[in-house]
Design a protein around this nucleic acid. Structure first.
Lengths: 134, 134
DNA sequence: CTTGACCTTTCCATTATGGGAAGCTTTATA
DNA sequence: TATAAAGCTTCCCATAATGGAAAGGTCAAG
């Protein structure tokens, strides 16, 4: 199949498939005489794996490691698990960070009239000297 | 004061101060005969405002709007508040997204032995046909 | 045989930040 | 004072992952 079909079937854009190939994340497929890339069903499988990994927030480099583990039939599941759990912690940390920002801002907004008047605790806070805010 | 001191006092790196100037976020300061940038106390104030805005996750474009509102003494606090609340929603949405990824992955990891054996539900999931996972 | 859909490569843009080089200035030290 | 260190200037490059567009070749259907 051509790259377009592989893209549709895997959920990875043709653009990205070429990119992944260029950085060595996936192996270069065969080519027709006219240089068209030709993919096999198994390649779509790999692309789906990458897609899933990306959807779960793994970077391409992490995805590269996961792919290597996937291909290595003698891997230790402990290796996969530790990689996954490290990522879980990173995700949770990032989520908590965003939540903290939201909470701080929501708190400030609570005290803002939100009417025609110019007074605004949000701007006042931004303009204030650096302090550890709630 | 020179850019280094302004950087230290504001918490914005000299590199970033120059960049903010280049994109018109802050106004170009005066220069000495030797072309050194000269900042006033008020400039540090502005830089701190930008820093705080960035720390709360606003993009530079959003920060630009906030700065404009800050400078506009006849602004309506409603405008500030709506900008802030839109951002709060975006932050919470993003946080929820990350949390969902973490939950999914943690769930998969729960069923992974995490020992020397190669069998791993995490990789199995990644390799599976696209399905709506828990 | 033409048209349209699809493929190819290459270049550019995004967001915000850091690193480094080459060269000038100012300050501190011997 | 001479010199070195620290600080400033501009310019270029790199990052992560993706999309867009241009210019041109290919293939299938009408």
């Amino acid at each position: 199949m051509n790259i377009g079909e592989a893209a549709t079937r895997s959920g990875v854009s043709a653009k990205m498939i070429r990119y992944y190939e260029s950085i060595g994340l996936i192996t270069p497929p065969a080519r027709t005489a006219a240089q068209y890339r030709v993919y096999a069903a198994d390649d779509v499988h790999t692309l789906r794996f990458v897609r899933r990994s990306r959807d779960l927030g793994f970077s391409l480099e992490e995805t590269r490691e996961l792919l290597a583990l996937w291909r290595d039939k003698s891997r230790a599941s402990a290796d996969v698990k530790s990689l996954a759990m490290a990522h879980v912690r990173a995700l949770e940390e990032k989520a908590a960070e965003l939540k903290a920002m939201a909470d701080t801002l929501r708190h400030l907004a609570t005290h803002c009239h939100g009417d025609h008047r110019p007074d605004c605790p949000i701007l006042a806070d931004f303009a204030a000297a650096p302090t550890v805010q709630a």
